[in-house]
């Protein structure tokens, strides 16, 4: 049996009468770059929100297995708990702490998974100072890794779209995750930024050993990056396989032709 990091079985998510995810089953192997594609409204972001504890599906199970082999159920846990287990994410419309600097944004990620230590913070004791130093070092390291060192003191809100994505990735990595969920990371970036982004994502997996789960509209990026794909439509999985297999799958072509020709052509 291979080493599975995410095991999603028969997940159904409803909002009132609207079914957002319908009996979705999928899995991700450790160290894999996995992508989820599908037309708008297919339920991709709902899936992400279910995987990170933001939404609570009514049916099914989601199991996350850590490096230590310990398996936990995501459903029923709060988002911050899921994050503490090693699931980091970015958001479709990037959500940063806009009024803080790039450095502070990442530092918040780096220090959030340690205990709170109010008393230490109040007294500013040696332990706290050591912690601060460690977080600072980690932050610098990550900013360098994503290529934002030069913009460490820039206010997050004034970063370009591409830089915001990288900031979000650095902040996610700062929490020391085992899997990084990227929600349309290429949205709003230009072609050259896209290439850099793809390289960055690959480096995250290769150098840091973090598995990648990706939602993306840009088919070129997905096809070049992902090792395996799931195709979602109307809240259900309609296809699964390598990029080549998916590209040849008539069901997928049909689903895309049914939505927008533009996307279908880009396959």
């Amino acid at each position: 049996m291979s080493d599975i990091i995410f095991d999603v079985r028969n997940v159904t998510l409803r909002f009132g009468g609207v079914i957002s995810l319908n009996d979705v089953s999928l899995h991700q192997d450790r160290g894999e770059i996995l992508a989820v594609i599908g037309p708008n409204g297919a339920g991709k972001t709902s899936l992400f929100n279910s995987l990170t504890g933001v939404y609570q599906p009514q049916e099914g199970t989601i199991n996350f297995t850590g490096r230590n082999g310990k398996s936990i159920s995501i459903i029923g846990r709060k988002a911050y708990r899921v994050a503490n287990f090693g699931v980091a994410r970015t958001f479709q419309a990037s959500r940063m702490f806009s009024a803080l600097s790039t450095f502070e944004n990442v530092k918040i990620g780096a220090e959030s998974h340690r205990g709170i230590g109010v008393v230490g913070a109040m007294l500013h004791g040696p332990g706290t100072r050591r912690d601060e130093k460690r977080s600072d070092e980690r932050t610098e390291e990550l900013l360098k890794f994503v290529g934002l060192s030069a913009k460490a003191n820039t206010i997050a809100a004034s970063l370009s779209y591409g830089d915001r994505r990288r900031l979000e990735i650095a902040r996610g990595l700062a929490t020391d995750p085992q899997v990084l969920l990227l929600d349309e990371p290429a949205a709003g970036t230009n072609p050259s930024e896209k290439v850099e982004l793809a390289n960055l994502i690959r480096r995250v997996r290769d150098n840091m050993g973090v598995s990648i789960l990706l939602i993306e509209h840009d088919m070129k990026l997905v096809m070049s990056l992902a090792e395996r794909l799931y195709v979602l439509n109307f809240g259900g999985v309609i296809a699964e396989g390598t990029p080549e297999e998916v590209r040849a799958n008539p069901v997928v072509i049909e689903a895309y032709l049914g939505s927008t020709t533009e996307e279908a052509e880009s396959i």
């Binding site: 990170t52 709060k78 911050y80 702490f97 803080l100 502070e104 530092k107 918040i108 929490t175």
Partner: peptide, 18 residues
């Protein structure tokens, strides 16, 4: 910093484990 993060975007703050 955690207070600031929560004040600005609670969902994002939770996503980093706060």
């Amino acid at each position: 910093r955690a207070w600031t993060a929560i004040r600005e975007d609670e969902v994002a703050a939770e996503s980093v484990g706060i």
